[in-house]
Design a protein around this nucleic acid. Structure first.
Lengths: 158, 158
DNA sequence: AAAACAATGTAGCTGATGCTAAATTATTTG
DNA sequence: CAAATAATTTAGCATCAGCTACATTGTTTT
């Protein structure tokens, strides 16, 4: 503690406004992984008919052990269903998460590219950013996007 | 495994391109906290002359115990210096991180606001997004920003 | 159908990030 | 300066997310 005692008296014991922003970011992080997995499972199911542990591992850049554990958590939380030694499928809840997530992802990528960011960097940045883009900001991105074919409306040209 | 054996033969054993994006995001996450702490310490040092554990805790929305442990890690990694029971100060490395981080933060907020996002939401979203914005994307934000006084140059009007 | 191989699951480790409760140290006050 | 108060640290717990090594189960191949 410093010598100036009145400095401390000024500080409030309540949480500061900034605290809420940080808390929100931490909360977001808890669902990021669910969104990434849901998206990957949806993609794989479309591509090959099913999502398997090895494929998810390869796509997400982790070992199959990590995938296994995470899938257990996602099943616990109602996002996926799976039988031992079988493929993984999204529940209705998981499908909703995946489609919302995919839409956001594609929109962020398209928006960054429209700003002149290279596709590679756009994809890299979008992967991290997308989870923190609120509905309001997403709408602003959409509005700012030059309509070169109405992205994000019906087709996802990934 | 499915009955169609050729499906598997097609898959490559190497990591997919998407894997790198996810890996990058996870790497980013490792430095997010360092950036948040560095920024908070810089702010507090400016405001009150020193950054203390309780103040950081209040600002970041965590308990003082969490702050304590994180500060130990940041000290281990060379971002801060602190003596037991004393205030926390940024090292040169920490100051660099803080100022880069603050500049990025302010620029992202300004950019979102320029898109029509409300200030409150802009700040909430920026807190999560900023850590995933690459130099290239940041430059694109800067370029797209209407120069209403050259934000991000010298003054931070927070 | 048995052997070989691929995929999945389990055990047990590391480290980061959160917490509460209790101990310690510093500061302020009487 | 001693007591009271405030701040910091330590101890110990939980969860998430990653890993390697090994065990088990499914699939393919011979």
């Amino acid at each position: 503690m410093t010598l100036k005692k009145n400095v401390r008296t000024i500080r409030s014991p309540q949480p500061l406004p900034q605290a809420e922003e940080h808390r929100q970011t931490r909360r977001d992080h808890a669902v990021e992984i669910a969104e990434d997995y849901a998206e990957a499972i949806a993609d794989l199911t479309l591509e090959t008919g099913e999502a398997r542990v090895v494929d998810l591992a390869r796509r997400l850049g982790v070992t199959h052990v990590t995938v296994n554990r995470t899938i257990a958590r996602l099943q616990r939380d109602g996002f996926v269903s799976s039988q031992p030694y079988r493929a993984i499928f999204l529940t209705e809840k998981g499908r909703r998460l995946a489609s919302a997530s995919k839409r956001r992802h594609e929109l962020v990528v398209a928006f960054l590219i429209s700003l002149g960011v290279s596709e590679r960097v756009a994809r890299l940045d979008a992967e991290g950013m997308e989870h923190h883009v609120s509905a309001e900001t997403l709408a602003a991105f959409q509005a700012a996007l030059p309509r070169t074919g109405q992205e994000g409306r019906k087709g996802q040209e990934g």
